[in-house]
Amino acid sequence: MTNARSGPVPNEALPGAGPVSTGHAGGIEGRTAARPQPGHPGLPGQTTAAEVVGRDLVSDCPSGSGAGVRMEAVGEPCPAVSLVDVRAGYGDRVALESVNLEVPLGALVAVVGPNGGGKSTLLKLIAGMLKPWEGTIEVLGASAGREARRVAYVPQAELVDWSFPVNVWTVAMMGRYPRLGPLRQPGRADHDAVATALERVGMADRAHSPIGALSGGQRRRAFLARALAAEVDLYLLDEPVTGVDVPTQEAIMELLGGEAEKGKAVVATTHDLGAAVRHFRSVVAINRRIVASGPSDIVTRPEVLAETYGGHLLFLGGNMGILDDSHHHDDPSGRERHYHEDGGGR
């Protein structure tokens, strides 16, 4: 396993690095209605779906005393995202229900689950693009969508029109548009922010390339640059490491880990459980509701997998399983096919 994270604070709380499930510098708290699961007391650093119902993680809140302290020991948390009893869907089809979730600032969270399980829906709810049928969603201290200029959203790559005539520089500059407003043109600070962001994602030399001429990994870097240039407090990324080469995955996650270290919150969906364990500190497993949440290595636990993926999971014995998920079958061109939850109902 490669430690893809870096930043000013050495991260001693890597999932699986030791019996330190309470020692996350950032994490999530899910108060779910998950059914109690048989525990695995012999596995250090792991938490069952039932155990994570309680608060077990810590944020970088000013009131906190740093990594290693349990949330409940401190005063009130300063959640970046808080969902209470949320129920949502499209048309008359329920996509998510009974969702209770808290993501503190400084968290680096993977959202995993099967296709149609509600991963993208969760992001859209947090971004304020989809209104919940029931429940409340608070983002950065206001109702979802209110603090939008402090939120950057990176859509799934396949939802972007890559033939659009726009170059990398302009894509990154778009991150600055909301703060500029209609009457102001980008100034020195905006140019500097874009240049810095492109430098950080390693795309400075491709600034003037049209996005259609980029590789999949470069396209993802360009969009990440847009998010970085926006200088936000909450990053929402839909499948940021899907279909990209390993060096790009590592680079993207290193940057996102760094942002989390700085106290920003990062919430990213992924169908790649390996990536979730390797690159994220915490995980929320969802399948129409929150099945489990906790340190990212909980997704390796059979009971969490079983409940998240249901019939799509084949057990081979022990902790080994195979996911029968369309995301995991690459087509010959190397691109991945996607069957997303918001495709069928509309």
């Binding site: 304020g128 939008a148 200029r149 939120v151 548009y177």
Partner: peptide, 8 residues
């Protein structure tokens, strides 16, 4: 989507 999420 990105534009809506960032407040436009």
């Amino acid at each position: 989507l990105g534009a809506a999420a960032s407040g436009l």
